[in-house]
Design a binder for these strands. Structure first.
Lengths: 253, 253
DNA sequence: CGCCGATTTGACTCAGATCAAGGTTTGTGG
DNA sequence: CCACAAACCTTGATCTGAGTCAAATCGGCG
């Protein structure tokens, strides 16, 4: 409330901006007072290492997480012990919304590389939502987007060919790169081929062959984890028009 | 507030109980005052007929809906004009959560048969959530369940064989029948084979053959839309153990 | 250098799609 | 009540995209 605390507010703002809470806070035009409240519920975690779990299905200690740096995957298990990756999360993205459904998380989350995340324990979030309506709206919008995103994945898994799936995956990554003002035609895959395959409902070998094929067609260049999209239009055409892939690939020697 | 209005409250309660809002209201232990508030935001719709749209992707007039009677499907479209069914909704189930993600609905909803639904316009829901925190929590739990349900579908579409998919579908329907105190081993499919196939990411012919096969195995009896599950354990075993199907079906004459 | 996990490539197989008829049920109009 | 059409569902034959199996190759790294 004084000039001394003003400095703290500024720090909080910067901290939140860096902490990728933009989606949660900034678009709602939060006041400094509100920002302070948010800051109280955040637990800043120390970095997690590759293959560390953020949370596991069954954890009753529910939280949502914001990826600050690095990347993370989320997965569900089936009774047979198989797993299905349901999302990859880049800096600025949130995860853990499955925890709202009941007393425990229903999926698990694992770091793909050394990463840092901010954690919002649900109970504390409850309090703040009550005090700051704008957060409540933001949460609802975020969960709505989660639902919409999942629907897009259902469409991908249910109706697309292997090539359409991989093209969709690359275009989606590219868009998300653009959102965070990174190069949208050249980026690193932080996950192994096996995870891409699992996510898209394919075999690893199929993913490998598709990368090779897209490279043959001069649509992308791949070198291990490095991807460069050299012809975005044709990449998008693969998704937009199922017949494009056929004619382009027909009888190539 | 008087005895005259007391009668109204009772009517509201009954009405909500019948209107299948149990999931939204009752578990939160709403007061009569709160129930009255909810009643204000509900628009009771006249029945919708088979193939009528409840809402379409792009509609900015966003609402969530509770199915009162009948059944409804929800679907997303892709650029090619193909569609993927993302959910079937029985009495007491809610739909339209995709409307929270932005300014418009991102999927469409169509009645599978003559049905009646209650509509909650989002703007009005906003007001009431603000006034009644318990509704806010209920909404969040409901959306969390939606996310969890979608994850289960991703697992189904991404990792399961055709037979496992159909078995999952039938077991899921059976559980939902039990939830509403209907017979859980014998029920009617309200959707055509084509819709089941689409929902499960299969061809109609495959679904038809699988029904025939499950009947041959004496696991179910099917007569057009009528299904009777005669061996629930083996039906569940198909999902729980991918090898069960193979050994059971092996070399049968 | 030599091992290990990740990736690629090739050969072969198969689950499920596609193509092609038929059969059945429902609805409509005369 | 019947004729006819339009859905809807089933069944058989064939084809193929993608999975599986097997084996090389690559990239790090102790």
């Amino acid at each position: 409330m004084t000039e001394a605390t003003q400095i703290n507010f500024d720090q909080l703002k910067v901290s939140c901006a860096n902490c990728s809470l933009r989606e949660l806070c900034v678009p709602q035009g939060m006041s400094e007072e509100e920002l302070e409240l948010v800051d109280k519920i955040i637990e800043r975690k120390k970095p997690v290492h590759k293959n560390d779990y953020l949370f596991r299905a069954g954890d009753t200690n529910r939280s949502i997480y914001a990826v600050l740096s690095g990347s993370v995957k989320t997965l569900v298990d089936n009774p047979n012990g198989e797993e299905q990756i349901v999302g990859f999360h880049l800096p600025g993205e949130l995860l853990g919304m499955d925890g709202f459904s009941g007393d425990a998380h229903t999926c698990s989350s694992v770091a793909l590389e050394t990463s840092s995340v901010c954690e919002f324990p649900l109970e504390k979030l409850d309090e703040v939502c009550h005090l700051v309506p704008s957060i409540q709206y933001a949460m609802r919008r975020i969960m709505g987007k989660e639902v919409t995103k999942d629907h897009a994945m259902l469409l991908l898994l249910g109706r697309m060919s292997a090539e359409e799936k991989l093209a969709s995956f690359l275009v989606s990554l590219s868009k998300r790169m653009a959102q965070r003002h990174w190069k949208q035609t050249e980026f690193n895959l932080t996950m192994p081929r096996q995870d891409i395959a699992n996510y898209l409902g394919l075999a690893v070998e199929t993913v490998s062959r598709l990368f090779a094929h897209l490279q043959d067609e001069n649509i992308i260049e791949v070198d291990r984890r490095r991807v460069n999209i050299s012809d975005m239009d044709r990449l998008k055409a693969i998704i937009g028009d199922g017949s494009a892939a056929k004619s382009a690939a027909a009888e190539q020697g």
